[in-house]
Design a protein around this nucleic acid. Structure first.
Lengths: 162, 162
DNA sequence: GAGAAGTCTTAAGGTAGCTTAATGCCCAAC
DNA sequence: GTTGGGCATTAAGCTACCTTAAGACTTCTC
Protein backbone atom coordinates (compact mmCIF):
# COMPACT_ATOMS: atom_id res chain seq x y z
CA UNK A 1 0.00 0.00 0.00
CA UNK A 2 2.75 2.49 0.79
CA UNK A 3 4.25 3.74 -2.46
CA UNK A 4 5.88 6.91 -3.62
CA UNK A 5 2.50 8.54 -4.10
CA UNK A 6 0.47 7.00 -1.28
CA UNK A 7 1.18 6.55 2.41
CA UNK A 8 -1.16 5.22 5.07
CA UNK A 9 -0.84 6.82 8.52
CA UNK A 10 -2.62 7.15 11.86
CA UNK A 11 -3.26 10.56 13.43
CA UNK A 12 -4.44 11.34 16.94
CA UNK A 13 -7.35 13.61 17.77
CA UNK A 14 -6.17 17.23 17.79
CA UNK A 15 -3.13 16.62 15.62
CA UNK A 16 -2.50 19.20 12.88
CA UNK A 17 -1.76 17.56 9.51
CA UNK A 18 -1.43 20.61 7.30
CA UNK A 19 -0.52 24.11 8.47
CA UNK A 20 -1.59 27.34 6.75
CA UNK A 21 1.23 29.01 4.84
CA UNK A 22 2.99 25.80 3.93
CA UNK A 23 3.27 24.87 0.29
CA UNK A 24 0.91 21.99 -0.11
CA UNK A 25 0.90 19.21 -2.65
CA UNK A 26 -0.96 16.57 -0.64
CA UNK A 27 -4.48 15.23 -0.64
CA UNK A 28 -5.78 13.30 2.38
CA UNK A 29 -8.19 10.41 2.04
CA UNK A 30 -9.93 9.56 5.31
CA UNK A 31 -10.21 5.80 5.91
CA UNK A 32 -11.49 6.09 9.46
CA UNK A 33 -12.14 9.00 11.82
CA UNK A 34 -12.85 12.65 11.10
CA UNK A 35 -10.74 15.52 9.77
CA UNK A 36 -11.62 19.15 9.18
CA UNK A 37 -10.12 22.15 7.42
CA UNK A 38 -10.46 25.72 8.63
CA UNK A 39 -9.11 29.26 8.36
CA UNK A 40 -8.38 31.77 11.09
CA UNK A 41 -8.90 35.44 10.29
CA UNK A 42 -6.90 38.40 11.60
CA UNK A 43 -9.29 38.79 14.54
CA UNK A 44 -8.68 35.22 15.65
CA UNK A 45 -12.06 33.90 14.53
CA UNK A 46 -12.11 30.34 13.18
CA UNK A 47 -14.17 29.35 10.14
CA UNK A 48 -14.55 25.68 9.32
CA UNK A 49 -14.38 25.13 5.59
CA UNK A 50 -14.95 21.38 5.42
CA UNK A 51 -15.56 18.25 7.49
CA UNK A 52 -14.18 14.97 6.15
CA UNK A 53 -15.50 11.75 7.71
CA UNK A 54 -14.80 8.20 6.53
CA UNK A 55 -14.56 7.90 2.75
CA UNK A 56 -14.05 11.62 2.14
CA UNK A 57 -11.10 13.44 0.66
CA UNK A 58 -9.78 16.69 2.06
CA UNK A 59 -7.11 19.12 0.84
CA UNK A 60 -6.31 22.74 0.42
CA UNK A 61 -7.27 23.51 -3.14
CA UNK A 62 -4.44 25.95 -3.70
CA UNK A 63 -2.36 25.58 -6.82
CA UNK A 64 0.82 23.66 -6.22
CA UNK A 65 3.06 26.72 -6.11
CA UNK A 66 0.99 28.68 -3.59
CA UNK A 67 1.01 28.39 0.21
CA UNK A 68 -2.04 26.74 1.74
CA UNK A 69 -4.83 28.91 3.14
CA UNK A 70 -6.34 26.15 5.23
CA UNK A 71 -5.32 24.31 8.37
CA UNK A 72 -6.23 20.63 8.40
CA UNK A 73 -6.46 18.73 11.68
CA UNK A 74 -8.06 15.65 13.22
CA UNK A 75 -11.28 15.91 15.23
CA UNK A 76 -11.09 12.20 16.10
CA UNK A 77 -8.33 9.61 16.09
CA UNK A 78 -8.12 8.86 12.39
CA UNK A 79 -6.57 6.66 9.77
CA UNK A 80 -5.74 8.44 6.53
CA UNK A 81 -4.04 7.93 3.20
CA UNK A 82 -1.75 10.73 2.06
CA UNK A 83 -1.69 11.14 -1.72
CA UNK A 84 0.24 13.40 -4.02
CA UNK A 85 -1.69 16.12 -5.85
CA UNK A 86 0.59 15.54 -8.82
CA UNK A 87 -1.68 15.93 -11.87
CA UNK A 88 0.51 13.70 -14.00
CA UNK A 89 -0.82 10.60 -12.26
CA UNK A 90 -2.98 8.68 -14.69
CA UNK A 91 -6.41 8.41 -13.19
CA UNK A 92 -7.91 11.89 -12.99
CA UNK A 93 -11.43 11.54 -11.71
CA UNK A 94 -13.35 14.26 -13.55
CA UNK A 95 -16.66 13.26 -11.99
CA UNK A 96 -15.16 13.83 -8.53
CA UNK A 97 -14.03 17.33 -9.49
CA UNK A 98 -17.44 18.22 -10.90
CA UNK A 99 -19.17 16.87 -7.82
CA UNK A 100 -16.88 18.87 -5.56
CA UNK A 101 -17.56 22.04 -7.55
CA UNK A 102 -21.27 21.33 -7.33
CA UNK A 103 -21.05 21.11 -3.53
CA UNK A 104 -19.21 24.43 -3.38
CA UNK A 105 -21.67 26.06 -5.78
CA UNK A 106 -24.58 24.94 -3.60
CA UNK A 107 -22.89 26.27 -0.50
CA UNK A 108 -22.18 29.69 -2.04
CA UNK A 109 -25.77 30.09 -3.21
CA UNK A 110 -26.99 29.00 0.19
CA UNK A 111 -24.71 31.45 2.01
CA UNK A 112 -26.02 34.27 -0.16
CA UNK A 113 -29.68 33.44 -0.13
CA UNK A 114 -30.70 31.39 2.90
CA UNK A 115 -30.93 32.41 6.56
CA UNK A 116 -28.73 30.61 9.08
CA UNK A 117 -31.49 28.38 10.44
CA UNK A 118 -32.23 26.99 6.98
CA UNK A 119 -28.55 26.40 6.32
CA UNK A 120 -28.42 24.55 9.65
CA UNK A 121 -31.40 22.37 8.81
CA UNK A 122 -29.94 21.58 5.41
CA UNK A 123 -26.65 20.66 7.08
CA UNK A 124 -28.37 18.31 9.52
CA UNK A 125 -30.25 16.61 6.69
CA UNK A 126 -27.17 16.27 4.55
CA UNK A 127 -24.65 15.26 7.22
CA UNK A 128 -26.71 13.76 10.09
CA UNK A 129 -23.85 11.74 11.52
CA UNK A 130 -21.42 14.68 11.66
CA UNK A 131 -24.00 16.57 13.70
CA UNK A 132 -23.64 13.88 16.35
CA UNK A 133 -19.86 13.80 16.28
CA UNK A 134 -18.79 17.42 16.62
CA UNK A 135 -19.76 20.15 19.12
CA UNK A 136 -22.45 22.54 17.98
CA UNK A 137 -20.07 25.47 17.96
CA UNK A 138 -18.17 23.82 15.10
CA UNK A 139 -21.33 23.50 13.07
CA UNK A 140 -21.97 27.19 13.73
CA UNK A 141 -18.46 27.89 12.50
CA UNK A 142 -19.16 25.90 9.32
CA UNK A 143 -22.40 27.83 8.80
CA UNK A 144 -20.65 31.17 9.22
CA UNK A 145 -22.42 32.22 12.42
CA UNK A 146 -21.62 32.28 16.15
CA UNK A 147 -22.60 29.46 18.52
CA UNK A 148 -24.91 31.90 20.33
CA UNK A 149 -26.73 32.77 17.11
CA UNK A 150 -27.23 29.08 16.29
CA UNK A 151 -28.51 28.31 19.76
CA UNK A 152 -30.97 31.18 19.53
CA UNK A 153 -32.12 30.29 16.03
CA UNK A 154 -32.85 26.71 17.10
CA UNK A 155 -34.78 27.93 20.14
CA UNK A 156 -36.80 30.38 18.04
CA UNK A 157 -37.64 27.64 15.54
CA UNK A 158 -38.88 25.27 18.24
CA UNK A 159 -40.95 28.01 19.90
CA UNK A 160 -42.48 28.94 16.55
CA UNK A 161 -43.51 25.31 15.77
CA UNK A 162 -45.91 24.81 18.66
CA UNK B 1 -13.95 24.91 -35.94
CA UNK B 2 -17.46 23.47 -35.65
CA UNK B 3 -17.20 19.81 -34.74
CA UNK B 4 -19.36 17.36 -32.87
CA UNK B 5 -18.05 18.66 -29.56
CA UNK B 6 -17.55 22.34 -30.30
CA UNK B 7 -19.77 24.93 -31.93
CA UNK B 8 -19.12 28.65 -32.28
CA UNK B 9 -22.18 30.90 -32.01
CA UNK B 10 -23.21 34.53 -31.53
CA UNK B 11 -25.69 35.52 -28.81
CA UNK B 12 -27.42 38.85 -28.34
CA UNK B 13 -27.51 40.79 -25.10
CA UNK B 14 -30.31 39.48 -22.91
CA UNK B 15 -30.52 36.07 -24.58
CA UNK B 16 -30.84 33.08 -22.26
CA UNK B 17 -28.42 30.29 -23.18
CA UNK B 18 -29.15 27.79 -20.44
CA UNK B 19 -32.35 27.57 -18.43
CA UNK B 20 -32.64 26.26 -14.86
CA UNK B 21 -34.18 22.80 -14.66
CA UNK B 22 -32.83 21.62 -18.00
CA UNK B 23 -30.42 18.75 -18.03
CA UNK B 24 -27.13 20.32 -18.92
CA UNK B 25 -24.08 18.82 -20.52
CA UNK B 26 -22.60 21.95 -22.04
CA UNK B 27 -19.74 24.25 -21.15
CA UNK B 28 -19.56 27.75 -22.64
CA UNK B 29 -16.29 29.41 -23.52
CA UNK B 30 -16.60 33.17 -23.98
CA UNK B 31 -14.59 34.47 -26.94
CA UNK B 32 -16.01 37.99 -26.83
CA UNK B 33 -18.66 39.71 -24.70
CA UNK B 34 -19.94 38.89 -21.23
CA UNK B 35 -22.11 36.10 -19.82
CA UNK B 36 -23.37 35.48 -16.33
CA UNK B 37 -25.00 32.67 -14.36
CA UNK B 38 -27.55 33.18 -11.62
CA UNK B 39 -30.26 31.55 -9.51
CA UNK B 40 -33.68 32.84 -8.57
CA UNK B 41 -35.06 31.85 -5.17
CA UNK B 42 -38.68 31.19 -4.28
CA UNK B 43 -39.17 34.85 -3.29
CA UNK B 44 -38.08 36.01 -6.74
CA UNK B 45 -34.71 37.34 -5.61
CA UNK B 46 -31.85 36.93 -8.11
CA UNK B 47 -28.35 35.91 -7.02
CA UNK B 48 -25.54 36.13 -9.52
CA UNK B 49 -23.21 33.17 -9.19
CA UNK B 50 -20.59 34.06 -11.81
CA UNK B 51 -19.57 36.61 -14.43
CA UNK B 52 -17.72 35.33 -17.49
CA UNK B 53 -15.96 37.92 -19.66
CA UNK B 54 -13.64 37.21 -22.62
CA UNK B 55 -11.48 34.13 -22.10
CA UNK B 56 -13.59 32.68 -19.30
CA UNK B 57 -15.54 29.47 -19.15
CA UNK B 58 -18.99 29.22 -17.63
CA UNK B 59 -21.28 26.28 -16.92
CA UNK B 60 -23.61 24.82 -14.39
CA UNK B 61 -21.49 22.41 -12.42
CA UNK B 62 -24.26 19.89 -11.93
CA UNK B 63 -23.50 16.27 -12.64
CA UNK B 64 -24.58 15.22 -16.07
CA UNK B 65 -27.72 13.45 -14.95
CA UNK B 66 -29.08 16.31 -12.82
CA UNK B 67 -31.07 19.37 -13.96
CA UNK B 68 -29.19 22.65 -13.92
CA UNK B 69 -29.60 24.98 -10.96
CA UNK B 70 -28.30 28.02 -12.81
CA UNK B 71 -29.60 30.23 -15.57
CA UNK B 72 -26.94 31.45 -18.00
CA UNK B 73 -27.55 34.52 -20.15
CA UNK B 74 -25.69 37.24 -22.04
CA UNK B 75 -25.10 40.68 -20.48
CA UNK B 76 -23.54 41.92 -23.75
CA UNK B 77 -23.65 40.77 -27.35
CA UNK B 78 -21.25 37.84 -27.20
CA UNK B 79 -19.42 35.26 -29.22
CA UNK B 80 -19.12 31.89 -27.51
CA UNK B 81 -17.94 28.36 -28.10
CA UNK B 82 -20.26 25.63 -26.87
CA UNK B 83 -18.41 22.53 -25.71
CA UNK B 84 -19.55 19.17 -24.45
CA UNK B 85 -18.97 18.37 -20.77
CA UNK B 86 -18.26 14.79 -21.80
CA UNK B 87 -15.42 13.64 -19.55
CA UNK B 88 -14.16 11.11 -22.06
CA UNK B 89 -12.60 13.85 -24.16
CA UNK B 90 -8.83 13.55 -23.96
CA UNK B 91 -7.51 16.83 -22.61
CA UNK B 92 -8.74 17.20 -19.03
CA UNK B 93 -7.19 20.30 -17.58
CA UNK B 94 -6.62 19.42 -13.93
CA UNK B 95 -5.00 22.77 -13.19
CA UNK B 96 -8.14 24.55 -14.39
CA UNK B 97 -10.31 22.46 -12.06
CA UNK B 98 -8.05 23.18 -9.09
CA UNK B 99 -7.99 26.87 -9.88
CA UNK B 100 -11.77 26.95 -10.14
CA UNK B 101 -12.10 25.19 -6.77
CA UNK B 102 -9.64 27.66 -5.27
CA UNK B 103 -11.79 30.58 -6.47
CA UNK B 104 -14.89 29.02 -4.93
CA UNK B 105 -13.04 28.26 -1.69
CA UNK B 106 -11.93 31.89 -1.44
CA UNK B 107 -15.46 33.11 -2.07
CA UNK B 108 -16.98 30.86 0.59
CA UNK B 109 -14.48 31.95 3.20
CA UNK B 110 -15.03 35.56 2.25
CA UNK B 111 -18.84 35.21 2.45
CA UNK B 112 -18.49 33.74 5.93
CA UNK B 113 -15.87 36.07 7.36
CA UNK B 114 -15.80 39.44 5.57
CA UNK B 115 -18.33 42.28 5.65
CA UNK B 116 -19.97 43.31 2.38
CA UNK B 117 -17.83 46.41 1.85
CA UNK B 118 -14.63 44.35 2.00
CA UNK B 119 -16.05 41.80 -0.40
CA UNK B 120 -16.93 44.66 -2.72
CA UNK B 121 -13.44 46.14 -2.59
CA UNK B 122 -11.93 42.74 -3.22
CA UNK B 123 -14.24 42.31 -6.19
CA UNK B 124 -13.23 45.66 -7.67
CA UNK B 125 -9.54 44.82 -7.28
CA UNK B 126 -9.96 41.38 -8.79
CA UNK B 127 -12.36 42.23 -11.66
CA UNK B 128 -11.88 45.97 -12.33
CA UNK B 129 -13.21 45.80 -15.88
CA UNK B 130 -16.41 43.97 -14.96
CA UNK B 131 -17.15 46.74 -12.49
CA UNK B 132 -17.29 49.13 -15.46
CA UNK B 133 -19.42 46.88 -17.62
CA UNK B 134 -22.35 45.85 -15.42
CA UNK B 135 -24.79 47.88 -13.31
CA UNK B 136 -23.94 48.15 -9.66
CA UNK B 137 -27.02 46.23 -8.64
CA UNK B 138 -25.59 43.14 -10.35
CA UNK B 139 -22.40 43.44 -8.34
CA UNK B 140 -24.54 43.69 -5.22
CA UNK B 141 -26.32 40.54 -6.35
CA UNK B 142 -22.96 38.78 -6.79
CA UNK B 143 -21.89 39.90 -3.31
CA UNK B 144 -25.11 38.62 -1.77
CA UNK B 145 -26.49 42.00 -0.66
CA UNK B 146 -29.10 44.47 -1.92
CA UNK B 147 -28.20 47.41 -4.20
CA UNK B 148 -29.28 49.79 -1.43
CA UNK B 149 -26.91 48.18 1.06
CA UNK B 150 -24.01 48.46 -1.39
CA UNK B 151 -24.76 52.09 -2.15
CA UNK B 152 -24.89 52.89 1.56
CA UNK B 153 -21.72 50.94 2.36
CA UNK B 154 -19.80 52.82 -0.35
CA UNK B 155 -21.08 56.16 0.95
CA UNK B 156 -20.18 55.26 4.53
CA UNK B 157 -16.68 54.22 3.46
CA UNK B 158 -16.08 57.51 1.60
CA UNK B 159 -17.41 59.56 4.50
CA UNK B 160 -15.20 57.67 6.93
CA UNK B 161 -12.04 58.26 4.84
CA UNK B 162 -11.96 62.03 5.08
C1' DG C 1 -39.03 65.90 -27.41
C1' DA C 2 -42.19 63.41 -24.03
C1' DG C 3 -43.00 59.58 -21.62
C1' DA C 4 -41.39 55.20 -19.83
C1' DA C 5 -38.15 52.34 -17.82
C1' DG C 6 -33.96 51.43 -15.49
C1' DT C 7 -30.45 52.97 -12.19
C1' DC C 8 -28.35 55.09 -8.11
C1' DT C 9 -28.91 57.29 -3.89
C1' DT C 10 -30.92 58.54 0.57
C1' DA C 11 -33.66 57.67 4.43
C1' DA C 12 -36.72 55.44 8.08
C1' DG C 13 -37.98 51.46 10.38
C1' DG C 14 -37.35 46.42 10.94
C1' DT C 15 -34.75 42.00 11.48
C1' DA C 16 -30.77 38.81 11.69
C1' DG C 17 -26.89 38.00 13.65
C1' DC C 18 -22.79 39.79 16.65
C1' DT C 19 -20.64 40.97 21.20
C1' DT C 20 -20.34 40.51 25.82
C1' DA C 21 -21.57 38.52 29.90
C1' DA C 22 -23.78 35.52 33.11
C1' DT C 23 -25.60 30.91 34.31
C1' DG C 24 -25.92 26.01 34.45
C1' DC C 25 -24.24 21.53 32.92
C1' DC C 26 -21.08 17.90 32.18
C1' DC C 27 -16.85 15.73 32.75
C1' DA C 28 -12.10 15.08 33.66
C1' DA C 29 -8.18 16.11 37.06
C1' DC C 30 -6.68 16.28 41.43
C1' DG D 1 -15.79 15.59 46.69
C1' DT D 2 -14.14 19.73 44.84
C1' DT D 3 -12.28 22.39 41.35
C1' DG D 4 -11.71 23.91 36.75
C1' DG D 5 -12.42 23.80 31.72
C1' DG D 6 -15.31 23.25 27.69
C1' DC D 7 -19.92 23.62 26.07
C1' DA D 8 -24.88 25.19 25.47
C1' DT D 9 -28.13 28.51 26.57
C1' DT D 10 -30.15 33.02 27.56
C1' DA D 11 -30.29 37.90 27.51
C1' DA D 12 -29.27 42.92 26.55
C1' DG D 13 -27.42 46.21 23.62
C1' DC D 14 -25.34 46.92 19.13
C1' DT D 15 -24.23 46.66 14.08
C1' DA D 16 -24.98 45.17 9.43
C1' DC D 17 -28.04 44.50 6.31
C1' DC D 18 -33.02 44.29 4.59
C1' DT D 19 -37.50 46.40 3.22
C1' DT D 20 -40.03 49.92 1.51
C1' DA D 21 -40.41 54.24 -0.40
C1' DA D 22 -39.22 58.39 -2.51
C1' DG D 23 -36.48 61.52 -5.50
C1' DA D 24 -32.98 62.58 -9.08
C1' DC D 25 -30.76 61.20 -13.07
C1' DT D 26 -29.89 58.66 -17.34
C1' DT D 27 -31.17 55.88 -21.24
C1' DC D 28 -34.50 53.85 -24.25
C1' DT D 29 -38.69 54.21 -27.00
C1' DC D 30 -42.13 56.10 -29.68
Amino acid sequence: MNTEHMKRILVEKGKVIQRAGEVNTKVYHVVKGLLRSYVTDNRGREFIYQFAPEGWVIADSCLSELPAALVIDALEDSEIIIMSKDPTRERVNVEAFIKRIWVLQTRIISLMSAPAIERYEHFVETYPDITQRVPQKMIASYLGITPEALSKAKGDRIRKNR
